[in-house]
């Protein structure tokens, strides 16, 4: 899975969460901050972390939780642990 595919999958996940929370579509960009720009709460961030682990089959340590901040940041995190796994 290349970086763009990972990002696309994460973007899809964020859009699904954001749509349900009635977050303006324009607010969803790859750099937008989940909390300050989009208004996700800490439970949604936990779900993002959990879904990434499930979707990409990686185990991401809790210490990475503070890095669940944007689509770009999440993509880097997933890539890091996919590489570590292989």
């Amino acid at each position: 899975m290349n970086k763009e595919e990972i990002k696309e999958a994460i973007r899809g996940m964020i859009i699904e969460i954001a749509e349900d929370m009635d977050i303006d579509e324009e607010a969803i960009t790859d750099d937008a901050k989940f909390v300050s720009d989009m208004g996700l709460d800490s439970m949604a961030l936990l779900e993002v972390l959990a879904t990434m682990e499930k979707k990409f089959g990686v185990s991401i340590p809790e210490t990475e939780f503070p890095n669940i901040t944007s689509i770009n940041q999440c993509t880097d995190t997933v890539e890091k642990y996919l590489v570590a796994k292989s």
């Binding site: 949604a44 779900e47 499930k54």
Partner: peptide, 13 residues
């Protein structure tokens, strides 16, 4: 089925 570390935390509520 999937493991205690896979289940969606939001579903707990």
């Amino acid at each position: 089925v999937n493991g205690v570390n896979i289940v969606n935390p939001q579903a707990f509520a």
